[in-house]
Design a protein around this nucleic acid. Structure first.
Lengths: 249, 249
DNA sequence: TGTACATCAGTGAACGCGCGTTCACTGATGTAC
DNA sequence: TGTACATCAGTGAACGCGCGTTCACTGATGTAC
């Protein structure tokens, strides 16, 4: 027991140190904009730069850790917001909660947001381990769709008319989908745990998410400067429009 | 006359040299990813780095020139695609042509696209002179809307039902717009030369553009990896869905 | 319980490279009289 | 037409700074007998 305890203390201290390095890195990113400098991190922590190599084999490895953390953080923010909505069939309410949670997270950590949604970092290729966390954002939305379908408040098959609050493009109403794309979209739905023949619904949901992050990119990357100052209201309007596009009740 | 000729030759050579520097810079961006290095540019041109200061007062000034050029280039690509549609009342056709032209431009010059739609460059603040060219993208869409309204193929006032191909959210059908946002959106429409009381239409058009660039960001910044391979078909589907959202005939 | 040994976090110097910007200069070309 | 002068593109050295990564090392802490 003594062995294990001592070893686990070391492990815990090590994990803590790793977290502190990542925190310092995040603080750096927030100030510097994007350039992640190992030496600057070490300086901030009062260490010598080579000491960081006890924790990360290279700058790229640290970058990967930060990216994974960011995907997890925004994913968790969405999940957390989703479960606060007690009426689980209020799909629009859940969607809006998730959307605003994502936005809040992005505004609180613009540099971290940029890390995952901005231009690729020069010379860095995202390794396989980032794809899992990256999916997390989509899983929340998929859960909303799935709950809607299982409870019957969302149309479960193409052609069904829905509640009447649906836009004309709901059901099979959207543009025609060429076969290869259709197959891919169904594959995406399956991978996200949504079982449905309604490919149009899958497509519109994906479009809604794309628009939402497009909106955040516009807001955070400066495309709204001198155009829209009512940022939150505008985002909210966009999120509601996308809820209608999907056909959420 | 001799004076002027000699002087204008000098001016032309100078302009040519400026263009060559920008071209080299663009080539650098395409390779390096994002880090714009004056020394690397000079090296590529077989000059000494200080020589560049004859043409640009600083790195930031060169960056600004590149950004302005990029906005102009993507703007022009859209405008050019728009005028190739001979039936000016085929608004969806025009919208799709513009959308695909933007995408083609972005795919041909991903680094330039990232320069204007990606994460802000660390330590760089976009000066006033970039806002004009930045508007150009929106003007093309505004022209489509305006032509639709002036010819009557698009509803010109809130509450009108439209062609029936419109989604339920057309006219006043969208989510309610809070007063300050309403004012701002009308201001945007006016600034873009669209005279209309239909704020919902303005909003939906802006959403459509936002989604489109969101789609391009997803495609170019790697969010579609392992998800959608049918990139062009998927983009086309999204653009068509947005045309329907706006209510374009 | 006490001592020899292993583990491992952190040091400090160095390698070899990069960068933006300034400054005094050379030398060709164009201008004015 | 010929000569003195001005303009200005490009040079080359330097300033003062940054970076990621390697490597032999110190010294504290934990482990095994």
């Amino acid at each position: 027991m003594q062995k294990r305890t001592a070893a686990s203390i070391r492990a815990r201290v090590r994990a803590q140190m790793t977290d502190e390095i990542k925190d310092a890195a995040r603080r750096q990113l927030a100030i510097e904009g994007a350039n992640l400098s190992l030496r600057a991190i070490a300086r901030e922590m009062g260490m010598v730069s080579s000491a960081l190599y006890r924790y990360f084999a290279s700058r790229d490895e640290l970058l990967t850790a930060l990216i994974v953390d960011a995907y997890d953080a925004i994913g968790e923010a969405g999940e957390h917001a989703d479960v606060t909505i007690t009426n689980r069939l209020d799909l629009t309410g859940r969607w809006l909660a998730v959307a605003h949670a994502w936005r809040d997270w992005a505004l609180a950590d613009p540099a971290e947001y940029a890390l995952i949604h901005g231009s690729p970092v020069p010379g860095y290729a995202a390794p396989q381990e980032t794809v899992g966390p990256a999916t997390r954002r989509f899983l929340v939305v998929a859960a909303i769709i799935r709950d809607g379908q299982e409870s019957g408040v969302l149309p479960t098959s193409p052609g069904s008319a829905g509640t009447g609050r649906l836009p004309a493009s709901a059901g099979t109403g959207g543009p025609p989908i060429p076969a290869p794309l259709l197959a891919e979209l169904n594959g995406v739905a399956n991978a996200l745990g949504v079982e449905s023949d309604d490919t149009g619904l899958t497509a519109r949901s994906l479009i809604a998410v794309t628009e939402l992050f497009g909106a955040l990119n516009f807001e955070l990357f400066g495309q709204l400067t001198n155009t829209i100052d009512e940022r939150e209201a505008w985002f909210d309007y966009q999120a509601r429009t996308m809820a209608a596009l999907i056909g959420l009740p």
